[in-house]
Design a protein around this nucleic acid. Structure first.
Lengths: 349, 349
DNA sequence: TCGGCCAGTGAAACCGATTACACTAGTCTA
DNA sequence: TAGACTAGTGTAATCGGTTTCACTGGCCGA
């Protein structure tokens, strides 16, 4: 007959190799309670008598106990880790976003895991992320990337898509309102120069932001009754070099010389600026330039670049908030946030 | 008597809620083997007959099976995740490092988890990282931060310290050889102008890189027999604004006008450049400037900034390699890598 | 033909937490 | 005073893998 007083044989204490990390049973032993009670002190203290809880807490302190997250995760299926997929970390664009996202995540008790190879047509990032781990995924998808979006959908975890055009069922989205800022920028230019001499030097042809910005450019020029608009729109890449090459080419050979350039981003604008200076074309007197992003290079250029500010920090913060909210309550209706962009006029226009 | 033919009662299949993720027993059932065999196929295929392994692999494919990392980690105590602690993500400095680190980590089968609040005198980053999770930690510690270093030591996992002055027993280290690049830069300046008119506009006083760069400046000037060196060394912060303010102040009020500035980093240099332009001080004719880092802003400035290149990508790659190596064999002697810096002369000097 | 060895496999213990369920002792109610 | 209820706690099942150990059957040499 088994009685309460019949102390069962103590399991041999695990050898703990040489790592001294203490486990929940160590705490339980020291506090003279069961592991269940220790667990309750951590997760639902209201179920435990104050005196007991106090004893357990002291034991935890003394042993510097930290719950094993594997064991915990095995049960609760959550880690407090969010995955962030970015096209790359180059430049400061994504850095600013990451900075804000990380701060917000930490505030909410989460950590960020990063992956940077979400290149067009590759879903590698999602594949290589340890998805069983993650409580949620935030992906910045500025290029068409069906494979990536689909594989994020397959994860069936809380996800936030930034900048993606694809909808994904049950997924929060954040879009950048390129149009408002770009429209303001181009209006600003055509007010100061002939619409027929305005050019757009855009980023990659397939980039969603590029497309929006180019389209805003076209729309404003159409509005002004300008002609031959398509001839004055070029696409390339988001780099100083591309802007530089375009300007060197266009400013020297074109018969209709540009008097204003709306650049796809700040890097391109800086390239144009450098070429203009080299060719002796004064900015803003003979050539007005507006960039996009509000990056540090725009602030560093001379003349200081007029640019359209993109609130990257806000995007990062919001993405984490949406993701966390969705984790907390997956039944909530997915929302679609649109963050505004704002023209900041400086000296180049 | 229990015989081989006595099929035990099948455990009720877990309800799987609504998530359809398959587990190892699903695979085992489908392949007609035990879970042990499935596990062997994954972890030590040489123990399994080819035909069986093939059957198991097919079952895994068909079920899109992915091992649960919690369960796995509970046994193996490893996750394939490295923690990266950076002072911040601002600017492109750390972005470049992260980019390379992430690529290398992925190559080695690891993921990166990031934390960015390793501010001076705060060990929060290490505290908030889910350390039981991590296979290793890479920390960029450009400021004295005993608490952080100590708490990394307490983790007793593989760690790589970048830029830290503190030694940590059993820990790999990477240092930036600021001195060689800085010395070359200052020599370059004193060859072109009077050493008595050379100034150093440095970064934060407590930043290790700042200290090295400033010290190299002093050393070269002493070598030249310059006087009043300390009066010509200023420290502030790594920002365009600080360089700008310094230059505005110094170029207008100083009796002894600078003819050369060695800046603590590119941002500071760009600030100086902007102020000089505004004051009508021609660069490089009347003021020669050299920056540090080889950042994108340096390439975007005009005149293009001479700068000392810091191989951030190399640092990121190397850090991951060291960390992974140490994880694979913890008994290996910790090494200390020093990455070189290189003067790149452009148009500002 | 017999014993030893080996390759291949399965049963079951285990990792360290959470939690459903059972139990006890005290308090409240009728 | 019996019965119901409740607060506080412990026991043991469980999560999904890995790994030890035992077992089987085939092959070998003596």
């Amino acid at each position: 007959m088994r009685s309460v007083y019949n102390t069962p044989v103590k399991k041999k204490r695990r050898s703990t190799r040489f790592s001294t990390a203490s486990v929940i049973s160590d705490v339980a032993d020291r506090a003279g309670v069961s592991t269940a009670t220790v667990s309750r002190v951590i997760n639902s203290p209201e179920l435990v008598a104050d005196a007991t809880a106090e004893r357990v807490r002291r034991a935890m302190d003394e042993l510097d106990y930290r719950p094993n997250l594997f064991a915990k995760g095995l049960i609760t299926r959550s880690t407090g880790v969010l995955g962030v997929i970015l096209p790359d970390f180059h430049g400061e664009f994504y850095g600013a976003l990451l900075q804000a996202a990380d701060a917000e995540a930490r505030r909410a008790g989460y950590n960020l895991i990063v992956a940077s190879d979400a290149r067009p047509d590759s879903a590698d990032a999602a594949q290589s992320l340890p998805v069983h781990f993650l409580d949620g995924v935030i992906a910045f998808v500025p290029f068409p990337n069906d494979a990536l979006v689909r594989s994020i959908g397959d994860l069936s975890i809380s996800a936030v898509l930034i900048d993606a055009q694809q909808e994904l069922e049950g997924t929060d989205r954040i879009s950048i309102d390129n149009t408002s800022g770009a429209t303001a920028a181009v209006r600003h230019l055509v007010e100061r120069t002939d619409a027929d001499d305005c050019f757009h030097v855009g980023g990659p042809e397939t980039n969603y932001d590029s497309i929006d910005r180019a389209e805003a450019f076209r729309a404003v020029l159409r509005e002004c009754g300008a002609s031959g608009i398509d001839d004055r729109v070029a696409s390339g890449e988001f780099s100083i070099d591309w802007g530089y090459r375009w300007a060197l080419d266009t400013l020297t050979t074109r018969t209709g010389r540009p008097t204003a350039v709306f650049a796809g981003n700040d890097d391109i604008a800086v390239g144009v600026l450098n070429a203009a200076r080299q060719l002796g074309v004064a900015c803003p007197d003979r050539l007005r330039i507006v960039g996009f992003d509000g990056s540090r290079v725009s602030a560093a250029s001379s003349p200081k670049l007029s640019t359209v500010q993109v609130p990257l920090a806000e995007i990062g913060t919001k993405a984490v908030q949406m993701c966390v909210r969705h984790i907390a309550d997956p039944t909530i209706n997915p929302s679609h946030a649109v963050v505004p962009t704002r023209l900041a006029v400086h000296d180049s226009s």
